[in-house]
Design a protein around this nucleic acid. Sequence first.
DNA 1: ATATATTGGTACCTAATAGTAACCTATCAG
DNA 2: CTGATAGGTTACTATTAGGTACCAATATAT
Lengths: 119, 119
Amino acid sequence: MKWNPYAARCPTRQLLDCISDKWVVLVLGLLESGPKRFSVLKREIDGISQKMLSQTLRTLEQNGLLTRRAFPTVPVTVEYELTSLGRSLNLALAPMIDWAVANMNRVQKARESYGKRLA
Amino acid sequence: MKWNPYAARCPTRQLLDCISDKWVVLVLGLLESGPKRFSVLKREIDGISQKMLSQTLRTLEQNGLLTRRAFPTVPVTVEYELTSLGRSLNLALAPMIDWAVANMNRVQKARESYGKRLA
DNA sequence: ATATATTGGTACCTAATAGTAACCTATCAG
DNA sequence: CTGATAGGTTACTATTAGGTACCAATATAT
């Protein structure tokens, strides 16, 4: 089978939709440096709600991008860790973060000049 | 200023949200090979609605990633072309498409084994 | 005993967004 | 005067995101 995300019903289209998500990019970026607990991720990703974080983590787990391990401590401790598939995805996603940081100034200038053109 | 997309109010967070979008990824991917008309983009991106396409294109234009040129033919013809900023972003996004195509099989297997674990 | 804090979730509700379909403008061909 | 065409916009609906509250289970403090 040859995959083609430009075709609406190709599974790669849906997969692309899954991975092109800010929370996915940020979560994978953090897990790059090793396993992390739920509460650590929540603290380090400023502005993410518990709901969105657990939802994002479950989807990533379902797709084989990370593993979830719960330890029977009290209260329960849960650790998330990238799989090798997840690490390979992160190689593709990390450049997005870098690009945003490197080009924020240029984008801001473009927005200003677009605003002026309207006036 | 040092940018940090892990901070909720940093402009790079909002920018990351803008660019991590399936339509953005697909549109930029197509424009890589040269300027294209609205109707061509619509035809080549199976399943995109006119609304989402024009919305996506306008946002990309506002952010300086592409230019829009309208020719006074009848009916009007509109051409979209990547800017150099857009081309630099596409370098960061294209690997996502490649990753999705290259790893679809692995993801499907992971989904199956996740399903089995529930049963 | 009772109150309080903790971790990692889920349930519920509302706000925002994506998608769908119809309509619009201008002009030319038949 | 009917229809077609390119590139939209508008109005409406369905889906999703996000916020808040709540939960279990136990440890510590009161």
